[in-house]
Amino acid sequence: MPDMNASYTSTRYRPRKTDNHVTFEHFYRVDLFTATLYKQLHELNSRFNDRTMELLRLSSTLVSKVINVDQLCLLVEKFYPEDFTEKKMIQLRYQLVIFNIDITKNPRLSGESTIVDLCKWLVEGL
């Protein structure tokens, strides 16, 4: 096993600065990790189209600790228009606003952290 504190010298390119002292540990923990992370991010960004990315972004509101009324309503309008009439969409917005107010005032609801947790709590309570 190599000494992780020893200087690392790249065999692929000549460094611009000669005083650049990089250890094996730094190379493996930072440089290699960063390069791998950027490669995976690029792969994920090119794998899904814009509509799918928007669906994922809006759906993430369902597991967020903050209930974003605008994002939930946008999710319903864009991806579930057949399931909600215009009247139901308006009612949903008002119900979410009222729920946001109630969740801060009701100690029984304030312990639930996400919509998923709230749904589990409601099912268990019935």
Score class of each variant (00 low, 15 high):
Asp102Tyr: 07
Pro107Ser: 00
Ser110Gln: 13
Ala6Thr: 04
Val30Pro: 01
Leu126Val: 09
Leu118Gly: 04
Thr36Leu: 15
Arg12Asp: 09
Phe33His: 08
Thr85Trp: 01
Leu96Trp: 02
Arg47Gly: 01
Asp83Leu: 14
Ile101Lys: 15
Phe84Tyr: 04
Ile90Thr: 15
Tyr28Ile: 06
Leu56Thr: 09
Ile115Gly: 06
Glu77Gln: 11
Tyr28Thr: 06
Arg16Tyr: 14
Asn20Pro: 00
Cys73His: 05
Gln95Tyr: 08
Asp31Gly: 07
Ile103Phe: 08
Arg29Phe: 04
Ser110Glu: 10
Leu74Lys: 13
Glu86Ala: 14
Phe99Pro: 06
Leu55Ile: 04
Glu43Gln: 14
Tyr8Val: 03
Arg29Gln: 09
Asn5Cys: 10
Thr36Gln: 14
Ala6Asn: 04
Lys88Leu: 13
Phe48Leu: 15
His21Gln: 12
Ser10Cys: 12
Met89Cys: 08
Ala35Glu: 13
Glu43Thr: 12
Thr52Asp: 10
Val63Met: 15
Val97Trp: 06
Glu86Met: 14
Glu25Gln: 09
Met89Glu: 11
Leu118Trp: 02
Pro2Gly: 06
Phe84Trp: 03
Lys17Val: 06
Tyr80Lys: 07
Ile101Ser: 15
Phe48Thr: 09
Glu124Ile: 08
Thr114Met: 01
Arg108Val: 12
Thr85Asp: 03
Leu96Lys: 01
Ser110Thr: 10
Arg12His: 09
Thr11His: 09
Arg14Cys: 08
Ala6Arg: 01
Arg93Leu: 01
Ala35His: 12
Thr9Trp: 10
Lys87Tyr: 11
